[in-house]
Design a protein around this nucleic acid. Sequence first.
RNA 1: CGGGACGUGGCGCAGUUUGGUAGCGCACUUGCUUUGGGAGCAAGAUGUCGCAGGUUCAAAUCCUGUCGUCCCGACCA
Length: 628
Amino acid sequence: MTQTSRTISAASEAAARAQEAAAADTPATASAAPDAAPAAPDGPKADKKAAAKPSRKAGKKAGKNIIRLSELYMPTLKEDPADAEIASHRLLMRAGMIRKAASGVYTFLPLGKKVLAKIENIVREEMDATGSQEVMMPALQPAELWFESGRWDDYGPELMRLKDRHERGFCLGPTHEELITSLVRNELRSYKELPLSLYQIQVKFRDEIRPRFGLLRGREFIMKDAYSFHDTQESLQRTYDKMSAAYGRMCDRMGLAWRAVQADSGQIGGSTSCEFMALAEAGEAELVYCECGYAANTEAGQGIAVLREYEAPRLEKIETPGISAIPDLAKYLHTPESSTVKAMVGKGADGALVMFLVPGDHELNLIKAGRVVPGFELLDDEEIEAAGLPKGSLGPVGLPAGLRLVAERDLRSMERWIVGANEDGYHYVGARPEADFTVDEWADVTVVKPQDRCRECEGVLEGARGIEVSQVFQLGDKYSQAMGATFSAEDGSEQHFVMGCYGVGVTRSMAAIVEQHNDGQGIVWPAAVAPAHVCVVVLDSTDDKVSAAAERMARELVEAGLEVAVDDRDLRAGVKFNDADLIGWPMQVVIGKRGLAQSKVEVKDRKTGEKQDLSLDAAAALIAAALL
RNA sequence: CGGGACGUGGCGCAGUUUGGUAGCGCACUUGCUUUGGGAGCAAGAUGUCGCAGGUUCAAAUCCUGUCGUCCCGACCA
């Protein structure tokens, strides 16, 4: 119990710290921005180019940075693709940024690739700033490493397995703990070299049970994964905090509305873990949060269930004809679902039967159940029958001996329970723990849900949905133990590395950004990740004066430090306007004969839709001011 | 894996109930006109109807199998 609450506060503190750290760092980022921001999206790139080609200023060279739509492979779609449901999938397809190659497998076209590069650069800059060093590990990994860690079996069918011509086993990496551990175990030998942090931006493979929602859940995707090695837990904690702060900054720079939440560490393993959620209805994750700062993924979080006692003077078996489901039972007894108790039977790895009891309006959390009963699995219908139990109306009263009973700890706040009578069509009311049955263990086993009370401050938990864009883990020595990765400590002893790992879903972030930044016309890219800052829409591209003015405009913008696209295609105005809105350049400059006659161009802000007629110089100045 | 749906020119779809030898819109090619919010007219090209069997004089259409894709579910007794 104490241990649990310590886990809670430790994890939630970590989440809150990440959120705060990012908030606190925002001014720093912002103050760095005046230097960095003009070049931020392509800072290092621009520097390199400037160094390599000092002649960049020669007009022709500058012109090379311009994206010319007349030459760009950018097949936009007028209609929504039939197999795309959510906004990001639909719009990225329509804007000609991605195409599907197979279920959950996508090609990135030139514009999509540019956005990807922007995101990768933000990630790279923030990772470099933490002192992590970029490497590149293979996607193709030998099976032996996975035998060593035990995950060849544990990872399950999601692991893409294959054999080479000599029948040797390989897999396509879904993550790289094994690889990185094998990399350092022979050559990272001394505590003096610690801590060490390495990262890569690379393609990952997971044979998802059901790929869906375009880039949000693919079978092949790009991930930034980092791994850190330490001699002590304290050292790990420092890096973990640094990474968390960096992750918050990445989200901010990508323009994401996000929240750091306490998470389960799942298949990766380890103890403390925190996820960064981009808030979105299309998100697959549910989370709860509280005013006090507590926030958690519902699969990992804890709350206090609010229960309503059903007045029953004593234990009484009542007839409930045809009723087995909780909602029907509650309705039949005119009481909230929270005054009933739901029973679920499963078995542990040893095959012993266990019954879990949870409030009727809550769900059993299988992850938590697995912690109480290792290898826990619910019985299927046949097994229930074989065990001599009824399918509905399960309950703790009068159970066969030897069946272990585990109850949600919050149920202790209720004296009299409504439970199944282990007989079709009958339930008990007024059943009292200890008097009418014996609970072997009280534990936290439910899925937290909105309206539960916060365990930290007793406030009411709110609910939201999110897209998990990144996650940080403290792995401890799970992999260094399994794979024998040790170093020499100061006292000369051999010790296992303490490890951390940190992932960012790059392609998933791209989808998350679109989920948060779109409207009826298309995508509205935040400037930092847009394929270019501004598009010069040339309405009469065959008119020499107009195209000359457009060229001048484009060059001026490039010289001001902006990334520029020019829609110089010989197409009708409406098509170009619609494409520009669909693709989502943050700003548009419309240049046509009509405006030029008055020496004016139109500047449109994609986000607000605001349009202004301005002189060429004023337009360039306005755009530069708005975007830099 | 369970349930549902869908595979017909590049894209979006109709045609399938009631078998009769493939159509619409967009895109594409050529020409003319047009040109500030997805142009008009004319001419043209593009499909072994996912694949494999079967039934039939005849199959996009009926039957069987198979592959692919999407949606829902995969704890909520």
